[in-house]
């Protein structure tokens, strides 16, 4: 699914979280959104999923305008969000949380196989499958939130800091998993604090600063950029 955002502005009362942001994500590619705390990255993903009101600008998926659609209609078009803070359903078990991702699917007979596939991706989840969402560790919640998003078989997957809270070894596995999902044709928008990791697996990247998009280009160019290295990549 191709995503086009143009002139997007979002405000929370007096706070201007996004200001005239234009971004495109190509079909089947990983697009990284990087930036400091409070730059507006999570707000951007929420705006795409329909969880915040947009004050100006356009968002379209495969040419379909999204701005006036409620979140459930955007989900029906194939958009899935693994949100900031994971937001699992706290009183549902891991399996039930995963199943909420698939709740609107019509190919019911394939859901079980997809749950198994998520367990293969994150074996830890299988061990914890009967635990309630609120009793999972931060990393386990992260895996479950991503699993829930995958279970909806999205065409556009929005990931908000998927590496947060994961052990270094698992971060690598997560990165491979994201690449694999993209290779299967899913468009991914990846928000990450770990900019180096995000840029190393992405095709394109956008840098946000204080609600504005100040730099964009191929991810490998950004990775090599001297200014970016000083400020965001910590080398």
């Amino acid at each position: 699914m191709r995503l086009d955002i143009s002139g997007l502005s979002v405000r929370y009362g007096a706070v201007e979280a996004l200001n005239d942001v234009s971004i495109a994500a190509r079909e089947g590619c990983i697009t990284a959104i990087i930036g400091a705390n409070g730059a507006g990255k999570s707000t951007l993903l929420k705006a795409i999923a329909g969880l915040v009101d947009v004050s100006d600008g356009q968002i379209s998926a495969n040419g379909v305008a999204l701005v006036d659609k409620p979140p459930e209609a955007r989900h029906a078009l194939g958009i899935a969000l693994s949100p900031e803070g994971r937001r699992l359903f706290p009183e549902l078990t891991v399996v039930e949380n995963l199943m909420t991702g698939a709740i609107r699917r019509t190919d019911r007979d394939r859901v079980a196989a997809d749950i198994t596939a998520v367990y293969d991706l994150f074996p830890r989840l299988k061990e914890r499958r009967a635990s309630l969402g609120r009793n999972l560790s931060g990393g386990e919640q992260q895996m479950c939130a991503i699993g829930r998003a995958l279970l909806s078989r999205p065409s556009l997957l929005l990931l908000d800091e998927p590496s947060l809270g994961l052990a270094p070894k698992v971060v690598g596995e997560m990165a491979h998993a994201i690449e694999r999902v993209a290779r299967s044709g899913v468009t991914i928008v990846l928000v990450e604090q770990n900019s180096r990791l995000a840029l190393s697996i992405s095709s394109d990247a956008f840098l946000l600063e204080a609600g504005r998009m100040i730099m964009s280009g191929p991810a490998k160019d950004m990775l090599a950029d001297k200014r970016l290295q000083d400020v965001y990549l910590g080398t």
Binding site: E72, A80, P83, P90
Partner: peptide
Amino acid sequence: RAVAQDTEIARAYGM
């Protein structure tokens, strides 16, 4: 149950 626990996320998953 999902809507009762987090309406916003439930909506984002089509409920």
